[in-house]
């Protein structure tokens, strides 16, 4: 699809805004609608748009497979790690009140970190699934 000038220019214009919007949704989810799940999906949608228009190879150079595989596991690890950290500092598993001096701040921090973990995993899984589907077609064609 690289040959369509309009698509290419519009996608290039939109990309930073989509990614910025995803980050806004991620970190503003406490105050407005949003959160890790939505942000991850929007982030992934942005990258899939990029991959659809500029081709898999370019998208693969931006986000190599290793990073994605790492990200899939990293998100779950952040989530579970926050829980374990709570155990270590004397709270209950996934009870964030013990994470800071003030229980309210602890809760806030915990929620932010957990949402970050959710976002990382969701985004990585969605992009990875798309790349895997698309690469599968390419390898099948070459066989």
């Amino acid at each position: 699809m690289y040959s369509y000038l309009v698509l290419r220019v519009v996608a290039k214009l939109l990309m930073p805004f989509i990614l910025l919007f995803a980050l806004y949704v991620q970190f503003h989810g406490d105050f407005g609608p949003g959160g890790g799940f939505q942000a991850g999906v929007i982030f992934a949608a942005g990258f899939i748009l990029y991959a659809l228009i500029f081709g898999l190879q370019k998208a693969g150079r931006v986000l190599p497979r290793g990073i994605l595989r790492f990200g899939i596991a990293l998100g779950v690890l952040i989530f579970a790690g926050v829980g374990v950290y709570n155990l270590l500092v004397g709270g209950k598993y996934l009870d964030y009140s013990a994470m800071a001096q003030n229980p309210v701040h602890g809760q806030h921090l915990g929620i932010l970190l957990v949402e970050l973990g959710v976002g990382v995993t969701v985004a990585s899984v969605m992009i990875m699934v798309f790349f895997t589907f698309a690469r599968h077609r390419n390898t099948k064609g070459s066989d």
């Binding site: 959160g35 799940f37 991850g40 999906v41 969701v122 899984v125 969605m126 699934v129 895997t132 589907f133 599968h136």
Partner: peptide, 20 residues
Amino acid sequence: ILTAIVVGVATTALGLALVI
């Protein structure tokens, strides 16, 4: 439902992979 939607698309992806 929020979590269910995202889990739903992940399992759908798995199902489509099986179809392939």
